[in-house]
Protein backbone atom coordinates (compact mmCIF):
# COMPACT_ATOMS: atom_id res chain seq x y z
CA UNK A 1 0.00 0.00 0.00
CA UNK A 2 2.82 2.39 0.90
CA UNK A 3 4.31 1.65 -2.50
CA UNK A 4 1.10 2.61 -4.28
CA UNK A 5 0.82 5.80 -2.26
CA UNK A 6 4.35 6.78 -3.20
CA UNK A 7 3.69 5.90 -6.85
CA UNK A 8 0.66 8.16 -7.12
CA UNK A 9 2.18 10.99 -5.09
CA UNK A 10 5.16 10.82 -7.48
CA UNK A 11 2.85 11.25 -10.43
CA UNK A 12 0.99 14.18 -8.92
CA UNK A 13 4.17 15.94 -7.84
CA UNK A 14 5.59 15.47 -11.34
CA UNK A 15 2.47 16.94 -12.91
CA UNK A 16 2.54 19.87 -10.50
CA UNK A 17 6.17 20.72 -11.10
CA UNK A 18 5.85 20.33 -14.86
CA UNK A 19 2.82 22.62 -15.02
CA UNK A 20 4.67 25.17 -12.91
CA UNK A 21 7.48 25.22 -15.45
CA UNK A 22 5.07 25.44 -18.35
CA UNK A 23 3.19 28.29 -16.69
CA UNK A 24 6.39 30.29 -16.35
CA UNK A 25 7.45 29.84 -19.96
CA UNK A 26 3.92 30.58 -21.15
CA UNK A 27 4.02 33.77 -19.12
CA UNK A 28 7.27 34.77 -20.80
CA UNK A 29 5.83 33.96 -24.21
CA UNK A 30 2.77 36.10 -23.53
CA UNK A 31 4.70 39.19 -22.54
CA UNK A 32 7.43 38.81 -25.16
CA UNK A 33 6.50 42.21 -26.60
CA UNK A 34 7.12 44.16 -23.42
CA UNK A 35 10.27 42.69 -22.02
CA UNK A 36 13.32 41.71 -24.05
CA UNK A 37 16.78 40.87 -22.90
CA UNK A 38 18.36 40.87 -26.36
CA UNK A 39 20.70 43.83 -27.02
CA UNK A 40 20.69 44.62 -30.74
CA UNK A 41 24.35 45.52 -30.44
CA UNK A 42 25.68 47.35 -33.44
CA UNK A 43 22.40 49.24 -33.83
CA UNK A 44 22.15 50.48 -30.27
CA UNK A 45 25.81 51.37 -29.81
CA UNK A 46 24.83 54.81 -28.47
CA UNK A 47 22.39 53.59 -25.86
CA UNK A 48 24.01 50.30 -24.94
CA UNK A 49 23.72 49.57 -21.23
CA UNK A 50 26.11 47.01 -19.84
CA UNK A 51 25.65 45.28 -16.50
CA UNK A 52 27.65 46.72 -13.65
CA UNK A 53 29.81 43.65 -13.25
CA UNK A 54 30.69 43.30 -16.93
CA UNK A 55 34.41 42.64 -17.40
CA UNK A 56 35.97 44.14 -20.51
CA UNK A 57 39.63 44.72 -19.79
CA UNK A 58 41.95 45.59 -16.88
CA UNK A 59 42.74 49.27 -16.46
CA UNK A 60 44.90 51.13 -13.97
CA UNK A 61 42.85 54.02 -12.60
CA UNK A 62 44.44 57.43 -12.71
CA UNK A 63 43.00 60.49 -10.99
CA UNK A 64 43.04 64.07 -12.30
CA UNK A 65 46.60 64.67 -11.04
CA UNK A 66 47.82 61.73 -13.15
CA UNK A 67 48.38 59.72 -10.02
CA UNK A 68 47.62 56.03 -9.51
CA UNK A 69 47.51 53.77 -6.48
CA UNK A 70 49.85 51.00 -7.66
CA UNK A 71 52.73 50.29 -5.29
CA UNK A 72 54.36 47.77 -7.59
CA UNK A 73 53.80 44.94 -5.13
CA UNK A 74 53.24 42.40 -7.99
CA UNK A 75 50.35 40.73 -6.16
CA UNK A 76 48.34 40.89 -9.37
CA UNK A 77 51.16 39.37 -11.38
CA UNK A 78 51.34 36.47 -8.94
CA UNK A 79 47.58 36.05 -8.90
CA UNK A 80 47.25 35.89 -12.67
CA UNK A 81 46.83 32.27 -13.82
CA UNK A 82 48.19 32.75 -17.33
CA UNK A 83 50.89 35.35 -17.13
CA UNK A 84 48.91 38.24 -18.50
CA UNK A 85 50.44 40.89 -16.25
CA UNK A 86 54.09 41.84 -16.03
CA UNK A 87 55.13 44.52 -13.52
CA UNK A 88 58.47 46.24 -13.93
CA UNK A 89 59.56 48.04 -10.79
CA UNK A 90 62.12 50.70 -10.13
CA UNK A 91 63.49 52.28 -6.99
CA UNK A 92 62.47 55.81 -6.17
CA UNK A 93 64.86 57.77 -4.05
CA UNK A 94 63.04 59.87 -1.53
CA UNK A 95 64.34 63.33 -0.44
CA UNK A 96 65.66 61.76 2.76
CA UNK A 97 67.82 59.46 0.65
CA UNK A 98 65.75 56.34 1.35
CA UNK A 99 65.13 53.90 -1.49
CA UNK A 100 61.56 52.88 -2.13
CA UNK A 101 60.13 50.29 -4.54
CA UNK A 102 57.76 51.81 -7.08
CA UNK A 103 55.99 51.00 -10.34
CA UNK A 104 57.92 51.59 -13.53
CA UNK A 105 55.79 49.90 -16.19
CA UNK A 106 52.54 47.95 -15.88
CA UNK A 107 52.47 45.62 -18.89
CA UNK A 108 49.14 43.96 -19.69
CA UNK A 109 48.73 41.31 -22.38
CA UNK A 110 45.09 41.64 -23.37
CA UNK A 111 45.40 38.75 -25.84
CA UNK A 112 46.15 36.37 -22.96
CA UNK A 113 43.59 37.68 -20.51
CA UNK A 114 40.53 35.58 -19.69
CA UNK A 115 38.80 38.31 -17.65
CA UNK A 116 38.86 36.11 -14.56
CA UNK A 117 39.01 39.06 -12.15
CA UNK A 118 41.65 37.42 -9.89
CA UNK A 119 44.12 40.31 -10.25
CA UNK A 120 41.49 42.84 -9.15
CA UNK A 121 40.69 40.76 -6.10
CA UNK A 122 44.39 40.39 -5.30
CA UNK A 123 45.21 44.10 -5.47
CA UNK A 124 45.68 45.44 -1.92
CA UNK A 125 45.25 49.10 -2.89
CA UNK A 126 42.38 48.87 -5.41
CA UNK A 127 44.62 50.36 -8.07
CA UNK A 128 43.23 48.31 -10.97
CA UNK A 129 39.67 47.64 -12.04
CA UNK A 130 37.72 46.06 -14.88
CA UNK A 131 36.62 48.54 -17.55
CA UNK A 132 33.42 48.08 -19.58
CA UNK A 133 35.00 48.49 -23.02
CA UNK A 134 34.78 45.39 -25.16
CA UNK A 135 35.55 46.34 -28.76
CA UNK A 136 39.11 45.10 -28.70
CA UNK A 137 39.62 44.00 -32.32
CA UNK A 138 42.83 45.30 -33.91
CA UNK A 139 44.75 44.38 -37.04
CA UNK A 140 48.10 43.99 -35.30
CA UNK A 141 48.53 41.66 -32.38
CA UNK A 142 51.25 43.85 -30.86
CA UNK A 143 48.64 46.48 -30.13
CA UNK A 144 47.09 44.15 -27.58
CA UNK A 145 50.14 44.37 -25.36
CA UNK A 146 49.38 47.47 -23.38
CA UNK A 147 51.21 49.71 -20.99
CA UNK A 148 48.67 50.62 -18.37
CA UNK A 149 50.35 53.44 -16.43
CA UNK A 150 50.21 56.81 -18.16
CA UNK A 151 53.53 58.47 -19.03
CA UNK A 152 54.75 60.61 -16.18
CA UNK A 153 52.27 59.24 -13.69
CA UNK A 154 53.31 58.60 -10.15
CA UNK A 155 51.96 57.00 -7.06
CA UNK A 156 49.38 58.88 -5.08
CA UNK A 157 50.55 60.33 -1.77
CA UNK A 158 49.74 58.21 1.22
CA UNK A 159 49.26 54.91 -0.54
CA UNK A 160 51.53 52.29 0.94
Amino acid sequence: MAFLKKYFSNIFQAIRSLTTGMRITAGYALRHGKEKITQQYPDNKKTLVLPERFRGEVVLTHDENNEHACTGCTACELACPNGTIKIITKFDVSPEGKKKKALDTFIYHLELCTMCNLCIEACPTNAIRMAQTFEHSVFDRNKLTKKLNNPGSKIREGVE
Binding site: Y28, A29, H32, E35, K36, I37, T38
Partner: peptide, 9 residues
Protein backbone atom coordinates in the same frame (compact mmCIF):
# COMPACT_ATOMS: atom_id res chain seq x y z
CA UNK B 1 8.44 30.39 -30.01
CA UNK B 2 11.81 29.70 -28.41
CA UNK B 3 12.65 33.40 -28.61
CA UNK B 4 9.37 34.37 -26.96
CA UNK B 5 9.81 31.88 -24.18
CA UNK B 6 13.34 33.09 -23.46
CA UNK B 7 12.49 36.81 -23.80
CA UNK B 8 14.68 37.07 -26.88
CA UNK B 9 13.92 38.56 -30.27
Amino acid sequence: VSAWMQLRL
